[in-house]
Design a protein around this nucleic acid. Structure first.
Lengths: 107, 107
DNA sequence: TTGACGCGATACCTTTTGGTTTCATATATA
DNA sequence: TATATATGAAACCAAAAGGTATCGCGTCAA
């Protein structure tokens, strides 16, 4: 079973969500990501590790560099989770509609 | 500006996501929610507060009871956030398609 | 009115989290 | 080869998170 926990945990921090947004524009090395934040490279590296654990990014080695990129598949747990609740509301609306129609048929 | 932070923070804990799932089946008082978890009522109450802060649930008073229910609108930040990235991938696919067509027109 | 019930709030504790500093390792390059 | 660059990793720290126990307050019911 795919556990969604690492994914949601990764999304809980605003710095990590901002990193994802930036990676949506272009792939970046750790140093490049670090340049965009007011914290040490080590701290950014930790965030990238959490994002990687959550499956939200992939990392490929290029010489001595490590290039980080978004991983579209990693977003599936969030989409699935959201779909569950939206389906739930669709069903509620359907039930409400049925109830109203049934009520009218009683006229 | 609506800040999405409390929403994502609320979703980071598995107990809170499970509470949401249970509330999708039926509204519940704090005591009822607590019965479904192996922790004190005070701990569950804290989770419900975080969920409320994140706008994911609403609470209404019924006598001395407090009834918790899902708040569909509270899920919007997650949906919007996800849509941003899915739009990003759609655009990438479109760009790829255009590039291929352009390439073919060069034949 | 007097308990019992459902809840809110606070103090307290332990673990996790997000940050730092520092050092080691691998790769490019003069 | 020697040096600079890019990263990994570990020790450490303060603050936040998740839990407990406890007390107080409003509400229901005998």
């Amino acid at each position: 079973m795919i556990t969604e926990q690492p994914t949601f945990k990764a999304l809980a921090d605003p710095t990590r969500r901002e990193i994802l947004r930036q990676l949506s524009e272009t792939d970046m090395t750790i140093a490049q990501v670090s340049d965009n934040f007011d914290m040490t490279r080590a701290a950014v590296k930790k965030h990238l590790t959490v994002l990687n654990d959550g499956g939200l990014i992939t990392v490929r080695t290029r010489g001595r560099e490590r290039v980080n990129a978004l991983n579209p598949e990693g977003f599936a747990p969030v989409r699935d989770w959201l779909n569950f609740f939206e389906q739930f509301w669709d069903d509620r609306l359907t039930d409400l509609k049925s109830a109203i129609e049934k009520d009218h048929s009683d006229d």
